[in-house]
Every structure is written in C-alpha cells, then in structure tokens.
C-alpha cells in the first residue's frame, strides 16, 4: 500500500508538469459524459417513463454506472492501455522487478484526468439521489458502496481480459470496447429495458445486472433484500479474468530490442 502511494505521488508530480493539458482533458471528460446526460434529458421530455423507471431513477442508475466505470478506468488503466505497455517494452521492465506483476501494471498507469468523468458521475449521482425520493437507511447506503466496489471490479475484469488478449495478439482488439465503453453507454438505463434475454445474459454470463439493475431495485424499494449483496457475487467474475491473465503471462514473447 505504501508502495502504491509512492507510485501515486509520481503520477501526481508528472501531471503537475503539464497542468494545462491536465485541466483540458478533465474538461473534455466532463463534457463527453455531459452529452449523454443531455440525451437522457431530452428523451424524458417526451416520455415520462421507461419500463417503469422515472427520469430521476434513470439518472441515478447512470450516475452509479458511470462512477463504477470511471473508478475502474482511473485505477485499472494499466490493463486498459496494456497493448502500449507491451509494445514499448515496459512489461519487460515490470518482469525484472521483484514485485507482483499485476500490482505493477495497476500502479504503472493511474489516470487522474478521469476526474472529469468522475465529477460528472458524482453530479448525476447526487441529483438522482435528491430527486428519486429514496428513503435512505444504513443498509441502503451500504448497498451503494457495494455497487461501486463490485462495479469497479467487474469493469476492471474486462480490462484484464483485454490485457490478456494482448499476450496473443497485439492488434485488432477494438471489439472489446463493446464490453467496456459499450457497457458504460448502455448502462444509462437499467439493464431490463433491453429485454429478458439481455437481462439473463447480463446476470449469468457477464454480470452487469448484478452491479446495476438488481441492487438498483433494492435501493428503490422494489427488490428483495439479498439483491443488495449481489455486487459481491459479481466480483467472482474476476477469477476467470485473472486465470486468463496467468495463461497470458506464460505466453509472453516480449517485443524485440
């Protein structure tokens, strides 16, 4: 943990060398997500409900998903940009250091400019909470924390899969964006509006529904109590991801000299 702090400080110092650039990328991140918010806003000017969810409930849903995603993106960015870590030979360097390689990949990229997106997420989140009229209790607050934690884990899992594929081929990985960026965009709405099949898929295969739809129902007082704990089950998703990673490391063939 202390070592992670050291890495964090170095990232912070590096960013401070380029203050203007940092500010602009934060603003950019903020505006991109703001766009999506406008989309939701204008749609609800025409329709008052989507599959039984109101405007503020959808905003709450989007705010939470966005926050989950930006947490994962800020801290697991090393896996997201892993192809550049491999092609620049940085991974060789990681392997000659006496520390766990997963830790080092995590620490080698900490993307603080994702603050902009996080800020947008927090705004939507707070707005959603204020308007949704949820009666807050301690268990419900705990459920939100679990959602954020589980969600960050699931998105990180996708980044790990993405990185593992880099061990076998360096190019043509854009399709993985369906699961990461795609999920963030579709995550605006509770998963069930896409139909029953998608909901099943997102429950048992890729656990999006476990970090979004079910716990949201619990927050809104429409779900069973155990729904609040489902984000923890979603963390199991990391196990196959990390297994794939281990196989990948064994296949590693470096990148010339």
């Amino acid at each position: 943990m202390k070592l992670y702090g050291k890495y964090f400080m170095i990232h912070l110092k590096s960013i401070m060398e380029y203050k203007t650039s940092f500010l602009f990328s934060c603003m950019g991140q903020f505006l991109v997500s703001f766009n999506v918010f406008l989309g939701i806003y204008f749609m609800f000017r025409r329709f008052s409900h989507v599959e039984g969810f109101t405007y503020s409930e959808v905003l709450l849903c989007y705010g939470i998903t966005l926050l989950e995603f930006s947490l994962a993106e800020a801290f697991a960015r090393g896996f997201d940009t892993f192809s550049s870590i491999v092609s620049q030979g940085e991974f060789d360097r990681i392997l000659v250091r006496p520390r766990n390689e997963i830790f080092q990949v995590l620490a080698s990229r900490i993307e603080l400019s994702r603050m902009g997106r996080m800020l947008q997420a927090v705004v939507l989140f707070v707005y959603g909470i204020r308007k949704s009229g949820i009666h807050w209790t301690y268990p419900k607050a705990a459920a939100v924390v679990l959602m954020l934690f589980g969600g960050a884990m699931v998105f990180s899992g996708f980044f790990v899969i993405y990185a593992s594929i880099c061990f076998f081929t360096i190019e043509g990985l854009e399709f993985m964006n369906i699961f990461t960026d795609g999920a963030r965009e579709y995550g605006k709405y509770p998963v069930n509006i896409y139909g029953k099949r998608v909901l099943q898929l997102c429950t048992f295969v890729v656990p999006y529904a476990l970090i979004q739809y079910y716990p949201l129902l619990y927050l809104l007082g429409r779900g069973k109590p155990y729904y609040a704990l489902l984000p923890l089950a979603a963390c199991l998703f990391l196990i196959p991801c990390l297994m794939l990673w281990k196989i990948g490391v064994r296949h590693y063939v470096s990148a010339g000299s």
Binding site: I10, K13, S14, E17, R93
Partner: peptide, 12 residues
C-alpha cells in the same frame, strides 16, 4: 540495463 529503453520516469 536496456540501452535503448529507459527505466526512469520521464517527467519527474
């Protein structure tokens, strides 16, 4: 030491 690659952080 890899002569063609750096292990130092570029900006600090």
């Amino acid at each position: 030491v890899f002569g063609q690659r750096t292990q130092l952080w570029w900006d600090v």
